[in-house]
Amino acid sequence: MTTLTMKVNGKTRTGDAEGRTLLVQFLRDELELTGTHVGCDTSQCGACVVHVNGKPVKSCTMFANEADGAEIVTIEGQAAEDGTLTAVQQAFQDHHGLQCGFCTPGMVMSATALLKENPKPTEADIRHYLEGNICRCTGYHNIIKAIYAASGQDVSSIAAE
């Protein structure tokens, strides 16, 4: 066991990890941040996406030890203290971009990263960026709309309202 220290959602957190402990296990089991989900074991589905030092990574495919000293942001760190949703979160609700909610944390984290890299993505840009985030419920239509809307672009240009 090693004791790791990370800044998670702005707060310094410490916890114990084995060599094999994955970052997602550290977040869920050690820090009790269960918003980050595990939907596969082959690094495909993206339900586990968090930001490490500002970049999206799959927390199921990174050892917790690799994140020692890093800044981590998870889904729990998105909305403001008073509960105000971020633009991406609010757009997901406004456009019904989620159903069962299981892939949603990863989707929101990926979408947030996309808009940081590319503030005005096209529909094709969004679809391409979500290559590693699988949703089984929505057929993606409303997720695409939500992200497009969160970027401040006119959704009616890509889909009928």
Partner: peptide, 21 residues
């Protein structure tokens, strides 16, 4: 109507079975 359940799912506060320990 916008979905009320979305708030907990969007903020990481859903309570799925694997979240129960």
């Amino acid at each position: 109507t916008k979905r009320r359940e979305d708030i907990r799912f969007l903020t990481g506060n859903g309570n799925y079975t694997d979240d129960i320990n």
